[in-house]
């Protein structure tokens, strides 16, 4: 045995021994470290979610003198079938609002994301007043949603609104933006596209600037025109960015409802109403909590579907690629 090794062993012996009492502490130590996060997740996610799922299986009491009643999945059945429920008023509109939510989310995403891409392409070059252009397109994203919606409520207002005043001054027929069923959802979608496009544009700009310029120079030398460059270089290299934006946009789409507070309260006849806002509208009466919980669970399931999609595209694929 040579000298350095002897030194090492002797040092080892002088280290404190981990006895049975201390090992418990050592065992628990990591849990103490994650405890703050775990407690937060438990209090603000797991506990309320469990309560929501449990609540969705009960019919709340009609008056304080009655007990709540276990009804199994009846609240869910009632939402889709109006024939035997005590709440035909809710089942009459639920499917409509579910469809509205899907239409709202899909159409805002499918319009604002491509437009954001085009804006990013246009602004990813050296032009005069670049900062002003970028800011103008980005600034709606800086506004709080309710503020943006309030601005648009002045634009959309029926007899006194900006949009109709402009239309009238050109001698064009006026439009009832928020007051008729055929327009109300579309009007709300326009506001969200206006608001969100600049936000997604920023992601694309960041993505565009991370693509090395020499790839385009090489393509130029090979005679690729601008469309071919976009099609075969830009889009494939921005695949990750696009997927990220899509997932962010979809989840945000299901959660953006406060604009309805300023833009017609989900009306007329719930034609622009969205699931989360409907939950908010029905929440104030405890007797609706069975249905409110059931709708929340449904919304949660839809959102989880997108989270799983997110995981599939970003994590699982990457793990597979790393394995190869």
């Amino acid at each position: 045995m040579d000298a350095p090794a002897q030194v090492a062993t002797s040092q080892l012996k002088t280290l404190p021994q981990i006895g049975p009492q201390k090992s418990l502490l050592a065992l628990l130590f990591p849990y103490f470290l994650v405890a703050p996060t775990l407690i937060l997740i438990f209090v603000f996610t797991i506990w309320p979610t469990t309560q929501t799922v449990i609540g969705s299986l009960y019919k709340p009491p009609l008056t304080v003198r009655q007990q709540e009643q276990f009804v199994g999945l009846q609240n869910y059945v009632d939402l889709f079938d109006s024939s035997r429920t005590t709440r035909p008023d809710i089942s009459a509109v639920f499917t409509k609002i579910l469809v509205n939510t899907l239409v709202f989310t899909t159409s805002t995403v499918l319009v604002s994301v491509p437009v954001a891409f085009i804006f990013a392409l246009l602004l990813n070059r050296k032009i005069r007043y670049l900062g002003i252009w970028r800011f103008s397109l980005f600034y709606p994203a800086l506004l709080p949603l309710i503020g943006a919606a309030s601005i648009w409520s002045f634009i959309y207002a029926d007899t006194i609104g900006l949009a109709n005043t402009v239309l009238r001054s050109f001698g064009l027929p006026t439009v009832q933006w928020l007051n008729i069923q055929s327009m109300s959802l579309l009007s709300v979608i326009i506001v969200i596209i206006w608001k969100q496009t600049g936000y997604y544009m920023i992601f694309y700009l960041a993505g565009l600037q991370s693509i090395p310029r020499d790839i385009y120079e090489a393509a130029d030398l090979d005679g690729a025109n601008i469309w071919q460059q976009i099609r075969f270089i830009t889009l494939p290299l921005l695949r990750r960015t696009t997927l990220f934006i899509m997932v962010v946009a979809f989840t945000a789409g299901f959660q953006m409802v406060e604009q309805l507070e300023a833009l017609g309260l989900g009306g007329p006849n719930d034609s622009s109403n969205l699931l989360l806002y409907y939950v908010f509208q029905k929440f104030s009466d405890p007797r609706n909590w069975g249905y409110v919980n059931a709708i929340t669970v449904i919304l949660l399931l839809i959102l989880m579907l997108f989270t799983v999609t997110n995981f599939y595209f970003f994590e699982w694929r990457r793990i597979r690629e790393d394995e190869h």
């Binding site: 207002a157 029926d158 007899t159 006194i160 009832q176 928020l178 007051n179 008729i180 017609g264 009306g267 007329p268």
Partner: peptide, 9 residues
């Protein structure tokens, strides 16, 4: 006018 008329306006 046709359609819903807004209380606040």
């Amino acid at each position: 006018p046709d359609g819903v008329i807004v209380w606040g306006d």
